[in-house]
Amino acid sequence: MSDHTRTMPTIRLSKFISGAGVCSRRQASRLIELGVVLVNGRRGVHIDQVSQQDLITIEGKLIHHSPPILYFIYNKPIGIDSVCNPNDPSSIIHFLPTISDDQRIFPVGRLDKDSHGLLLLTNDGELCQRLMHPDFYHEKVYRVTVDKVVTEDFLEAMRSGIEYGNIKTRPCQLMQVNEYQFDITLTQGMNRQIRRMCQALSYRVKDLFRFRILGLQMTGLNSGDNRALTESEIRDLYDEIRAS
């Protein structure tokens, strides 16, 4: 079936009304019984199956059904570009979870093609704006493997902020893991920032893995896998954003 002839998913009328935020599903059923709900100009009944293509009114007021807000984490493998470009076979757009024909989710921010780890996927525009806006200092944590032994001088220079090009990076937190690895916590997200910081100190990044955004952890997911966030994870994420 072509995209032009495919019908949109349908749901029960009462569920449509409650999903639009008008009232509870039980209250929606009462409105249907009262005869004040019209579906495409006719009186609605409980067994009606409707979609966003239908015109639903309650006492003459048009009801708009917003799709549910969805949140996933994705363990992005190396080699996948987080830019949504349908013409690029390596673009993340070809690897996103399939939700429905009329609903899509997208990555929040970027993780460069040579790096791997945690990407947040959502259709929540407010969350995207708050996480990506430079005025909000949201923490993102990476484990970095470099080509030379990590020294105290290197760690202190990175912590203080590095100058490259026409910029100087914000001070950040570093913790050494072993001779060649350290964890770095950034509160900004400039293009290839960690790689350029290391390069300015004559180090080369061999592996870059992001494992935390705010309190959201990359645990229990194999490379290339995704899962929906739990209700508590979503709640904690928003609590942290509102507190910033």
Rank of each mutant, 00 (worst) to 15 (best):
Y203P: 05
T187A: 01
D207Q: 09
S18T: 11
I213H: 06
N226W: 15
E240D: 07
Y203D: 06
L34N: 15
L62E: 12
T219M: 07
T7P: 03
L38R: 13
V50N: 04
F154K: 00
L216F: 04
L13P: 14
N166I: 14
I184E: 02
M175K: 13
R159C: 01
M132I: 07
I69Y: 04
N123G: 03
D183M: 02
D207K: 09
I194M: 10
H65F: 15
L38P: 04
T151G: 01
H4Q: 12
P67K: 06
K15A: 12
I80S: 07
N40P: 10
G189L: 07
N191G: 02
S29I: 10
A157K: 14
Q52N: 13
M132E: 04
N226F: 15
F209W: 12
V37M: 00
D102I: 09
R104P: 01
V108M: 08
Y164I: 13
P97D: 06
E240N: 06
N226Y: 15
F72Y: 15
D88L: 11
G117Y: 02
S115H: 05
D101V: 11
V144A: 13
I167Y: 06
D153K: 14
T187C: 04
R26N: 13
G224C: 03
I11F: 13
D88Y: 14
R30V: 15
S223C: 13
D239E: 10
R192T: 03
S14R: 05
T230R: 04
H64N: 08
P9F: 12
V39M: 00
S24I: 07
C23M: 04
E156I: 04
P134I: 07
G189E: 03
R26V: 11
R130M: 05
G215P: 01
G161D: 08
L118E: 02
Q181K: 06
K113M: 09
A200I: 10
Y74E: 03
G189R: 13
K168Y: 02
V146C: 14
R6V: 14
I213C: 04
G220M: 09
M158C: 03
C198A: 14
C198Q: 01
L229Q: 01
S66D: 08
R242L: 08
Y203A: 09
E233T: 05
R212Y: 00
S100F: 11
R110H: 07
Q173K: 15
S51R: 09
L221E: 01
M132S: 09
L31M: 14
R12P: 13
V45R: 07
D114F: 15
L70S: 00
D135F: 09
I47F: 02
F16K: 00
F106I: 01
L13E: 00
R210S: 04
